[in-house]
Nucleic acid binder design. Structure first.
Lengths: 193, 193
DNA sequence: TGATAATGAGACATGTAAGTCTCATTATGA
DNA sequence: TCATAATGAGACTTACATGTCTCATTATCA
């Protein structure tokens, strides 16, 4: 389904714009189109040649970021192996896709406005699928909904990214910190009754 | 330190504006001053009588929200009793202060721009203080920094509020879900080696 | 009741990002 | 090398939130 019509140059520019948009908007939602163009190292007029509207750009960036996260998820092979290990791979992948995730997750409105008119690739394994598999195997907390667990997962990944952004966590320690938080929470196992 | 000069009417109106600002901006950062005025059930001109600038309003709302959260924290008496129970009271208080927290936490920029010129009340017990006390007593994970634990706490409280907003969690179940996530994470204790 | 405070509605000016267009320049591929 | 695609700079208009102001109305308090 990729655009075979588009020249190599154009599709490269398009990708650069989408990546810049996600990256810039993740850090500042009010960022100007000029800001985004500058980050993508292109002229503002060029940006308008690819996306007529600001809304058009944001929509495309959401879809693109979704695909990227979807792809990372797929590459983590979350439908294979023990759920706990699959989850660890997924968390690492999500931390890698850092600002895409921050862009999607950081703005509740962007996402919810768009979930209606966007259908995910059904052939790919989903995060909720992994969670439900884990719950069935008694690994993930079965007392709460899979959606809630997914929300927590996203929130922790986002928090880890943000903490790294402001220097609270070293980049290389983010995945471990998030994994630890997701699996154990903040109370030491020994202290539990 | 409260304004004794201001009439009852004025201070009531002022509070209504600040509450509305936090509530509206928590749900939409790009919200118009007209949106905020409408939510506060006042005219836009009245809003300008109280806050000359948009920035002025946002700053005041940040300070105010800070005070509210600070007060909730104080009322939870987090410097007393076992850390785990104090933390449970704190989480309940934070969930109560829902949109104030979402306003502060939802916009990293708003907060970080302001932490410089805003000094917290040093006579009040802090969240980090509670966490460090818990770590010293071996209750909270001592392997990570107290600041990271605080970030996770805020993120979970925010996520709980958001989940309730979109109907993913029932209002009365939020505090329990957040507490559970904070203490145990998402992996069932029995499944741990 | 009367004086003053507080407000709402709305007209008006302003600043800034968004969107459109032209034209000269650079890059790409046959 | 040549034709065409792609781009950058910048002038220009538009749309909209913002901020200021006036005036009539309502609320509050002595």
């Amino acid at each position: 389904m990729t655009d075979t019509r588009e020249s190599g140059t154009r599709s490269r520019t398009r990708r650069a714009i989408l990546a810049a948009a996600a990256s810039v908007l993740a850090r500042d939602r009010g960022a100007t189109l000029a800001d985004i163009a500058e980050a993508a190292q292109i002229g503002r007029s060029t940006l308008h040649r690819y996306f007529s509207d600001r809304q058009d750009l944001v929509n495309a960036a959401v879809v693109d970021s979704f695909r990227v996260v979807e792809k990372s998820t797929a590459e983590a092979a979350i439908d294979q192996g023990p759920p706990l290990e699959a989850m660890r791979r997924l968390i690492a992948a999500m931390v890698d896709a850092g600002d895409r995730l921050a862009f999607l997750f950081g703005d509740p409105r962007v996402l919810e406005e768009f979930t209606a008119c966007f259908e995910p690739d059904l052939s790919l394994p989903t995060t909720v699928g992994l969670i439900e598999r884990g719950q069935a195997e008694g690994v993930f907390d079965p007392a709460v909904s899979a959606e809630w667990i997914q929300q927590v997962l996203w929130a922790l990944a986002y928090t880890g990214w943000e903490a790294a952004e402001k220097g609270l966590l070293p980049r290389h320690g983010v995945a471990a910190a998030v994994t630890r938080a997701f699996e154990n929470g903040m109370v030491v196992p020994q202290a539990r009754p």
